[in-house]
């Protein structure tokens, strides 16, 4: 419940960001993140809210763990399931 999941900001509309998570686009709220966020930034998200902008020099290291977890789709992995729950906490995009 506290693992969070990083994603790349594509577009910002007020307090809502469109964020790419490994090819899945979701909406994330920017109400609580305390640094300015721009398209291209990576943010750590928890239950649908960005809680921290990830410093640029730390992005690769931060993503590595999640790359590994999400790559294991064929295996029912407990930790990977928690990451997928975090993805489900971000809102699917409204189409139209």
């Amino acid at each position: 419940m506290c693992l969070g999941v990083p994603g790349r900001v594509l577009e910002i509309d007020g307090l809502v960001a469109r964020v790419d998570f490994w090819g899945v686009e979701r909406e994330v709220r920017l109400d609580v993140v305390d640094q300015p966020v721009e398209p291209g930034d990576f943010v750590l998200n928890h239950v649908g809210f960005a809680i921290r902008r990830i410093p640029e020099e730390e992005i690769e290291q931060t993503l590595a763990l999640y790359d590994e977890l999400l790559a294991e789709l064929e295996r029912e992995d407990l930790m990977a399931a928690d990451v997928r729950s975090e993805l489900a906490g971000a809102r699917p995009r409204d189409d139209g």
Binding site: M1, C2, G4, R29, D31, V32, H46, V47, G48, F49, I51
Partner: peptide, 10 residues
């Protein structure tokens, strides 16, 4: 915990 309570507050 507090990490999750922040979202509730927001």
């Amino acid at each position: 915990f507090e990490t999750t309570a922040v979202a509730t507050a927001a």
